[in-house]
């Protein structure tokens, strides 16, 4: 997928884009329709057009195609369903503190990493997977999750922290199979 996105970005390769579309469009539609929209297909088309137009900005050294496309769909979902903004830093802001030397192990796009992440996601304890999924699909805030599960907010926070730690370890290839 990453190679396809690079081909779209560097050559405007329509065949590569169609392959990306066939793979991601049904997943993005599912993701965008969790908000309950009848117009999920149109929103999905919008998301894929943004992928096409911005592909030249994609840098495979900074993450996988799936993560990059996810971020586009996420922002579109917030724009479509919520009245509030999602503030983001601006990489070209003169007040931004620039990156130092990139550590040599920043290489998240490799397919082994994606495989390890996929496995780790299936191995999360159910209570951790549940808060992660609610946050991802249902757009529920930490306090909304706490209220719905009738657990203290601190419990939701710690489940998210545990889930993040396990998945991060899997991404870095340092994860212990739990």
């Amino acid at each position: 997928m990453t190679a396809l996105l690079v081909a779209v970005g560097t050559n405007g390769d329509v065949e590569a884009f169609e392959a990306l579309f066939r793979h991601f469009a049904p997943r993005i539609k599912a993701y965008l329709s969790r908000g309950g929209a009848a117009s999920a297909d149109e929103l999905m088309q919008e998301a894929m057009l943004i992928v096409w137009r911005r592909a030249a900005l994609y840098d495979p050294a900074k993450g996988s195609a799936a993560a990059w496309i996810f971020a586009i769909a996420r922002n579109l979902r917030i724009d479509a369903y919520r009245r509030e903004k999602r503030p983001e830093f601006d990489p070209s802001d003169p007040a931004l503190v620039p990156d130092g030397e990139e550590p040599a192990d920043m290489r998240l796009a490799a397919s082994e990493d994606a495989e390890r992440l996929k496995l780790a996601l299936t191995q999360l304890p159910p209570d951790q997977a549940d808060v992660l999924n609610r946050s991802f699909f249902s757009d529920q805030s930490q306090s909304e999750i706490a209220a719905e599960l009738k657990v203290p907010l601190g419990t939701v926070k710690s489940r998210m922290r545990l889930a993040f730690a396990k998945l991060k370890a899997a991404l870095r290839g340092t994860g212990e199979a739990s």
């Binding site: 991601f24 997943r27 599912a30 993450g63 799936a66 990059w68 991802f136």
Partner: peptide
């Protein structure tokens, strides 16, 4: 970037919906 990789992994694992 790592947190967004998790989002990418969840998107990959989403049950596809017919377009």
């Amino acid at each position: 970037v790592e947190a967004e990789e998790i989002g990418g992994g969840l998107l990959e694992g989403t049950q596809p919906q017919a377009i």
